[in-house]
Computed example of a mutant assay.
Amino acid sequence: MKNVGEAREVPERAPQEELATGERSTRNRVARSILDHGPSTVADLAGRLGLTQAAVRRHLDALVQENVVEGREKRVYGARTRGRPAKVFALTDCGRDAFDQSYDKLAADAMRWIALTHGEAAVAEFARARIAEQAEAYRAAIEAAPPERRTDALAKALTADGYAATARSAPVGEQLCQHHCPVAHVAEQYPQLCEAETEIFSALLGTHVQRLATIAHGDGVCTTYIPKAAPQPAGSADNTADSTGGTDIAENTANTSASTAGRNPA
């Protein structure tokens, strides 16, 4: 992560400067933890980083002033419980950019050229072809995992591609959470990227999935709901796996989960 607002280094640091450098290092760890795990409470960060809650608040206050993180009310799915919702801290766009060397403008210009020259359908076709190529590694990871661990295997494969993904239990299913999106800024303009990704998840896991939230839509994390799979007839798993290879996946998943892919239904 870039050190926002860090003073220029001199050959020899005074003790106060050494202290400031240590503070910045810890502050970067706080921001990195939010990137890897998504919007987090003070207690979450203190537990993960081995810091006191008072120390975490001090670093968060500094990061808020630098526009690296922002505080927000924790989103509650389902019925609310009594009491005030916990406050969580999420990365701002500025904070996310600090972790990237981005080629967003170049990518957006290329997408715009495709749309103007060949039409919106060509943008969707490109998005499917792009994710289909990535999906080869995801398919291999999923096929090597037992059925009950396939979502977790997909999360690990996505993390290897820079999406900082995790899988967790949800009522009657699971949630796949991507805490980072390398193409979020481009996907804001071209949601076909999110839609193609959702389609590929459905094909790889062999079930309808529902996109609940996306970073491109302004949410803190991309969240995909995966219902508990129903028992399949013998041989159906092999057919699903075969359908994810090469360019076939773009054709076989064109209409899967399209009604909710890439957009927060809220």
Rank of each mutant, 00 (worst) to 15 (best):
T198K: 04
C94W: 12
A20S: 09
A153S: 06
G262R: 02
I226R: 06
N264W: 03
Y77M: 13
A20D: 12
A203K: 01
M111F: 15
K2G: 09
A110R: 11
L158T: 03
G38A: 04
E23V: 08
A98H: 10
I249N: 00
I131E: 13
H217V: 09
A261S: 05
L212M: 11
V88A: 07
G173N: 13
D93I: 03
A241Q: 12
A266H: 10
Q178Y: 03
D104P: 01
G218D: 13
A167D: 08
Q178W: 03
G50C: 08
S40I: 05
T260L: 11
E251M: 11
G78W: 12
H59F: 07
V68D: 01
V186H: 00
G218M: 05
S259P: 01
A167K: 02
E188S: 06
T244G: 09
P233Y: 01
V123Y: 02
A121I: 06
R263K: 12
F99M: 08
G38V: 01
R130T: 07
V76S: 13
V172T: 09
A157M: 05
N239G: 14
S33T: 14
H208Y: 14
A167Q: 10
S25H: 14
E6C: 10
Y163W: 15
P171M: 04
A127P: 02
A122F: 05
F99I: 01
G235R: 03
Q232D: 07
R84W: 05
A254D: 12
T41H: 04
L212F: 00
D100M: 12
E148P: 02
T159W: 06
A170F: 07
E9P: 04
E174C: 00
A157D: 00
R149A: 14
A86V: 08
L204I: 09
H180Y: 09
P15I: 02
V172N: 15
A140G: 01
A155F: 06
A155I: 04
A62S: 15
P15G: 05
R24P: 04
